[in-house]
Design a protein around this nucleic acid. Structure first.
Lengths: 356, 356
DNA sequence: TTGTATGCGTTATCAT
DNA sequence: ATGATAACGCATACAA
């Protein structure tokens, strides 16, 4: 709104040519400390900031990163996605970049939408989250030959840069913990097999049960969609299994599902953490205020964001980059909800955090 | 990555000068339909898109809007904020704009941060959400004399453009509904008085109780922070009030608080919607899957986003704009949780939506 | 050590 | 109806 301050303005103020000012801004060339200081002072006084558009035009770099996410996909809780967004924005800024929101439109538009952004040179690269099986965005962006990294992986996209949390290993830790605590009949409340994230987590359960030589009754695996209400009904279903094979522990793929399950257990007159163990996934803030506290799996979102950004910037800077999924391990957070079996594991101490 | 397509590329392809191509792009000047068509064909074939940086440099408009939000502030549930973000991105795109994420840094940085964005002409304006009392961002941005609109209002900012949902009217609708249903002893689970949103909603409760000539016992007003777990403990507190003045209805300022309250009621062996009425705020998706369904207040986020964006673009386009808060009314969604008093209000039909 | 010239891709004003 | 010229603000190779 006010008179714009450009290199020339500063140059006039400092009594030099504007190119010299540019050099000071970029710490280039050989300039006498005295002059440099004088010019810097002018810059500060006038509050000069390089014009982003001019810089982008000249350097062919917008320093903008497109972030494509989805409001609907619920494989990750919004808590995780909010956190991820927050973190990439912060990391991007530290690197001199900004995040541009790219809405997810209809299937049909996906292609043209990314193309426009690239053709107009609006962004230097993309970050994609909420990846599904055969996610059309992966192919669209890959075809544009533009830098991109995804948080999460699609099945078909083995040759693209991505970072993901090893949900399989995460659930495995939880199941191991339950087995160590004495549980043998362990059930899982999972997602439909159209969910890549869900299948991954379920695999972690199957891995450990099989390794431990524990039989898995078909009825112990519930698959469905939803949050608390789904956890509630799924747990009811599990608790209705007749005694010999009724599970003593319930693993879930999401904290809010676990919360519903806990409710169902209590409604049955049973005590979570004594009669039945329950575990969650994500370590939502509310999770620790539950009574009993929920044993859950914490995703290293901070690290995911950091990795995503550094992989992306490597590509942007033309460095040869890895096209193999980078897997980060989540950690098991043990609280009271996973006790049971006469507190077999009590000496390990509740509320402690185990990083395996 | 590939050879950039510029006006000149297209011009060469079509056999004209590049200025003529520019005119076709902008539907300007007098150009014979035939030529126009031929040029348009070249544009399509080559996939030409105007370079955003060059355009911004030339027109002094980045067509970028900075969006400042906060991960921590929980006056609005993240559900509302996610929705709002989604909606402004979509509306912005329809208007040819994009949303740039502006992280909220430390108190100290607030000022310089916005200033940099403006001085560098990165953005054309700002949208602010999660507004608090005396929000430092309001003053920072206002001082820069740059277009901005906030979702929510600070107390001190009466003279800035903002859009907000009338939470006071929303809670008032809920309380009216409860009174109509026969309730007289109505309690509220609210937020600390440091919360502007919370105070606003509480005022709606006090308004109606007072208008209806109903006395309000101090113990009926609980204030605190948190979500489900807070709702649980607050409701426990209310249910512990000895009989003559124990509330028969509990109004809350957030769906997740209401969910906790419902749990507490059930734990007491009482039935929500029969013995005790409970209402929420926000109409989260899960809310309708609860049993009983939660009566709640739906915020017109779609409309808020639309209004915020049009107010902002008006400022950006130099139109004289309103500097008065624009208040939008939420609607009451009646489900089963607000019944009670022997289903006094049953004939009105559950699961119906009332827009008062 | 400092200053000059050129072009990035676009829009807009002016001749033709 | 169409084309030449200038300017937006910056970075950089090159000359002084």
């Amino acid at each position: 709104m006010t008179e714009p301050v450009t290199l020339k303005t500063v140059a006039k103020h400092a009594g030099v040519s504007y190119q010299t000012v540019s050099k000071v801004v970029h710490n280039q060339g050989q300039i006498s400390p005295a002059l440099r200081q004088r010019i810097q002072k002018s810059i500060d006084e006038l509050g000069y900031r390089p014009n982003a558009a001019a810089q982008a035009l000249r350097t062919h770099a917008s320093h903008l990163i497109g972030y494509s996410w989805s409001l609907e996909r619920k494989d990750h809780s919004s808590f995780i996605l909010d956190q991820f967004q927050h973190d990439i924005v912060e990391d991007a800024e530290d690197a001199g970049y900004h995040i541009l929101l790219v809405p997810r439109r209809t299937e049909h538009d996906v292609d043209s939408h990314f193309r426009e952004l690239v053709k107009a040179r609006r962004v230097d690269g993309f970050i994609l989250s909420s990846i599904e099986y055969n996610d059309p965005r992966i192919e669209s962006v890959a075809r544009l030959k533009v830098p991109f990294v995804s948080f999460g992986r699609s099945h078909t996209s083995d040759a693209t840069a991505c970072v993901d949390v090893d949900g399989r290993a995460g659930i495995a830790k939880a199941v191991h913990h339950l087995i160590d605590s004495g549980h043998r009949r362990i059930a899982i409340i999972a997602w439909p097999d159209s969910s890549r994230v869900g299948n991954d987590r379920l695999a972690g359960y199957l891995d450990v049960m099989s390794d431990a030589g524990l039989p898995v009754e078909p009825a112990w695996i519930v698959r469905g969609t939803g949050e608390t209400e789904y956890g509630y009904s799924a747990a009811q279903q599990l608790l209705a299994i007749p005694e010999p094979s009724r599970p003593s522990a319930i693993v879930t793929v999401l904290d809010s599902i676990a919360m519903g399950a806990m409710q169902a257990v209590e409604t049955c007159g049973l005590i979570v953490g004594r009669d039945i163990a329950v575990t969650g996934f994500d370590d939502m803030p509310t999770t620790r205020h539950l009574k009993p506290g929920l044993t859950t799996i914490r995703q290293p979102i901070r690290e995911v964001a950091r990795a995503v950004l550094s992989l992306l910037l490597a590509q942007v800077n033309g460095e040869q980059s890895v096209v193999q999924p980078l897997m980060l391990s989540p950690e098991l957070v043990i609280r009271e909800s996973s006790q049971g079996y006469g507190h077999v594991d009590h000496e390990k101490g509740a509320l402690s955090t185990v990083t395996a």
